[in-house]
Design a protein around this nucleic acid. Structure first.
Ligand code: MN
Ligand code: MN
Ligand code: ZN
Ligand code: ZN
Lengths: 142, 142
DNA sequence: AGCACTTTTTAGAATAATTCTAATTATTGA
DNA sequence: TCAATAATTAGAATTATTCTAAAAAGTGCT
């Protein structure tokens, strides 16, 4: 029997990352797979559309629930551009996001290895940073 | 007569910054003054509440309209934290925002003079940055 | 000032992303 | 197998924001 405590019946291991303390249901796996497969930054609605291809019965509420669970367990990141719908990102390395206004594409912008945030910013005395979000908008010279 | 072409009757000069090409109405002045006076980062609803103290007839729609006009003309900045209501900031210097999770306060975080964004980020080849948003969440050691 | 024209304000309706509710289904662990 | 817990679901509710259309205000003539 290949199923273990983290793998409910019928789920393959590669659909089923063992996220610390998060029960990996079929729906959560499917949502996670959608993000891993495309590696772009879809909205909840887009995740829903893609998930329905493999799992026609999944609901939008469940997609929201799964995304929230994955975000809370650090398996996925939530990305916001201004007031637009939230987008979701499977890239867990420290990075910001560049929104190309011409193509509409969202490009991951890695933080340079070893760079200090305090070289760029006059941080408040004693500040302890729990979360950093860097968002860029612009164009790319052709 | 002290009124000039940019100062409709009854408005004092200091309520009435001459924002390039933006007609400075009583409502826009009031909204702008609310932001300049408190220098925190209120939501549209909070601006509405404060504006009503001086101008009881102003409407929420107008507050939204004024804020949009001021943002579009660069007199004020719009700041977003995750999915919360937009906040508005009268500080036009380049800065990010630190949200102190304990006090709830939002603190301006100046960009260090002369610091290069490309020292921190692996920017896409040929990227031209039109807009940069830096958002931090955390606590301040007591 | 009087008049046409444009812009702004306003109250209230509409929108849309997200969250909530409550019922059903699935999973766990004894 | 069975009770307890957790997840999923459809649809309703929420809420920040935008839209609509009518009234008011401002502008630039003459
Ligand atoms: Mn876009
Ligand atoms: Mn807070
Ligand atoms: Zn990303
Ligand atoms: Zn600010």
């Amino acid at each position: 029997m290949k199923n273990n405590i983290n793998e409910p019946s019928g789920i393959q291991a590669d659909d089923c990352p063992s996220v610390d303390g998060l029960r990996m249901t079929r729906q959560r796996s499917e949502v996670y797979k959608v993000l891993m497969d495309h590696r772009d930054h879809p909205t909840a609605g887009e995740v829903f559309e893609r998930a329905k291809e493999n799992m026609p019965t999944i609901s939008l509420a469940t997609v929201y629930n799964c995304l929230e669970a994955l975000v809370q367990h650090g398996a996925v990141r939530q990305v916001n551009f201004e007031r637009e719908s939230s987008r979701y990102c499977p890239n867990l390395t420290e990075h910001g996001h560049f929104h190309d206004e011409e193509s509409g594409e969202i490009i991951d912008v890695p933080l340079k290895k070893g760079a200090m945030l305090s070289d760029l910013l006059e941080l408040p005395e004693g500040a302890q940073i729990d979360n950093l979000e860097i968002t860029l908008r612009g164009t790319i010279a052709e």
